[in-house]
Protein backbone atom coordinates (compact mmCIF):
# COMPACT_ATOMS: atom_id res chain seq x y z
CA UNK A 1 0.00 0.00 0.00
CA UNK A 2 2.73 2.43 0.90
CA UNK A 3 4.66 1.70 -2.21
CA UNK A 4 4.27 5.24 -3.35
CA UNK A 5 7.29 6.29 -1.41
CA UNK A 6 9.54 3.70 -2.85
CA UNK A 7 12.12 5.14 -5.11
CA UNK A 8 12.05 3.60 -8.50
CA UNK A 9 15.53 2.79 -9.62
CA UNK A 10 16.15 4.04 -13.11
CA UNK A 11 19.05 3.86 -15.44
CA UNK A 12 19.07 7.61 -15.66
CA UNK A 13 22.09 9.07 -14.02
CA UNK A 14 21.76 12.81 -13.53
CA UNK A 15 25.49 13.18 -13.23
CA UNK A 16 26.29 11.25 -16.37
CA UNK A 17 26.56 14.36 -18.46
CA UNK A 18 28.77 16.19 -16.06
CA UNK A 19 31.06 13.25 -15.65
CA UNK A 20 31.27 12.65 -19.34
CA UNK A 21 32.24 16.24 -19.89
CA UNK A 22 34.88 16.09 -17.25
CA UNK A 23 36.33 12.92 -18.63
CA UNK A 24 36.58 14.61 -22.00
CA UNK A 25 40.16 15.24 -21.02
CA UNK A 26 39.70 18.65 -19.52
CA UNK A 27 36.99 19.89 -21.79
CA UNK A 28 37.01 23.18 -19.99
CA UNK A 29 40.73 23.52 -19.91
CA UNK A 30 42.10 26.29 -21.98
CA UNK A 31 45.47 26.36 -23.55
CA UNK A 32 46.96 29.66 -22.55
CA UNK A 33 49.38 31.33 -24.89
CA UNK A 34 51.13 34.24 -23.29
CA UNK A 35 53.87 36.60 -24.12
CA UNK A 36 56.31 38.25 -21.84
CA UNK A 37 58.64 41.12 -22.41
CA UNK A 38 62.31 40.74 -21.93
CA UNK A 39 65.02 43.30 -22.22
CA UNK A 40 64.91 45.51 -25.26
CA UNK A 41 62.44 44.40 -27.87
CA UNK A 42 62.86 40.75 -27.10
CA UNK A 43 60.08 38.65 -25.81
CA UNK A 44 59.10 35.17 -24.77
CA UNK A 45 56.06 33.11 -25.59
CA UNK A 46 54.74 30.51 -23.21
CA UNK A 47 52.24 27.81 -23.99
CA UNK A 48 50.56 26.40 -20.94
CA UNK A 49 47.87 23.83 -20.46
CA UNK A 50 48.38 21.38 -23.28
CA UNK A 51 47.08 17.94 -22.57
CA UNK A 52 49.39 15.73 -20.65
CA UNK A 53 49.18 12.94 -23.18
CA UNK A 54 51.09 14.90 -25.74
CA UNK A 55 54.77 14.62 -25.96
CA UNK A 56 55.87 18.12 -25.26
CA UNK A 57 59.32 17.63 -26.60
CA UNK A 58 58.01 16.46 -29.96
CA UNK A 59 55.65 19.39 -30.27
CA UNK A 60 58.46 21.68 -29.31
CA UNK A 61 60.73 20.21 -31.89
CA UNK A 62 58.25 20.83 -34.68
CA UNK A 63 57.42 24.29 -33.45
CA UNK A 64 61.05 25.22 -33.30
CA UNK A 65 61.60 24.02 -36.80
CA UNK A 66 58.52 25.78 -38.09
CA UNK A 67 59.12 29.19 -36.60
CA UNK A 68 62.89 29.12 -36.59
CA UNK A 69 63.16 29.91 -32.95
CA UNK A 70 64.59 28.24 -29.94
CA UNK A 71 62.58 27.04 -27.01
CA UNK A 72 62.41 24.74 -24.05
CA UNK A 73 60.01 22.75 -22.00
CA UNK A 74 59.94 24.19 -18.54
CA UNK A 75 58.82 22.18 -15.56
CA UNK A 76 56.69 24.27 -13.28
CA UNK A 77 55.81 22.99 -9.83
CA UNK A 78 52.17 24.08 -10.09
CA UNK A 79 51.32 24.10 -13.75
CA UNK A 80 53.24 21.12 -14.95
CA UNK A 81 55.11 21.44 -18.17
CA UNK A 82 55.13 24.67 -20.09
CA UNK A 83 56.54 25.27 -23.53
CA UNK A 84 58.63 28.37 -23.78
CA UNK A 85 59.62 29.91 -27.08
CA UNK A 86 61.80 32.79 -28.04
CA UNK A 87 60.13 35.76 -29.58
CA UNK A 88 56.50 36.72 -29.86
CA UNK A 89 55.05 33.61 -31.48
CA UNK A 90 51.55 33.83 -30.12
CA UNK A 91 49.72 33.83 -33.41
CA UNK A 92 52.07 31.33 -34.94
CA UNK A 93 51.70 28.93 -32.08
CA UNK A 94 47.96 29.25 -32.00
CA UNK A 95 47.75 28.53 -35.71
CA UNK A 96 50.13 25.67 -35.44
CA UNK A 97 48.27 24.01 -32.60
CA UNK A 98 44.99 24.30 -34.41
CA UNK A 99 46.34 23.00 -37.67
CA UNK A 100 48.11 20.11 -36.08
CA UNK A 101 44.83 19.19 -34.43
CA UNK A 102 46.28 19.37 -30.97
CA UNK A 103 43.77 21.83 -29.64
CA UNK A 104 40.52 23.20 -30.92
CA UNK A 105 40.47 26.82 -31.79
CA UNK A 106 38.05 27.85 -29.11
CA UNK A 107 40.18 26.20 -26.48
CA UNK A 108 43.09 28.50 -27.09
CA UNK A 109 43.33 31.70 -25.15
CA UNK A 110 45.82 34.23 -26.31
CA UNK A 111 46.87 36.61 -23.59
CA UNK A 112 48.92 39.71 -23.66
CA UNK A 113 48.33 42.84 -25.67
Amino acid sequence: MSELNVQIPTTFDPFADANAEDSGAGAKEYVHVRTQQRNGRKSLTTVQGLKKEFSYSKILKDVKKEFCCNGTVVQDPELGQVIQLQGDQRKNVANFLVQAGIVKKDRIKIHGF
Binding site: H32, Q37, R38, N39, T46, Q48, V74, L79, V82
Partner: peptide, 8 residues
Protein backbone atom coordinates in the same frame (compact mmCIF):
# COMPACT_ATOMS: atom_id res chain seq x y z
CA UNK B 1 48.50 35.05 -13.55
CA UNK B 2 49.46 31.74 -15.04
CA UNK B 3 52.97 30.82 -15.85
CA UNK B 4 55.47 33.63 -15.68
CA UNK B 5 58.87 32.76 -16.97
CA UNK B 6 61.88 33.94 -15.15
CA UNK B 7 63.24 36.88 -17.04
CA UNK B 8 66.38 38.73 -16.26
Amino acid sequence: AGFVARVG
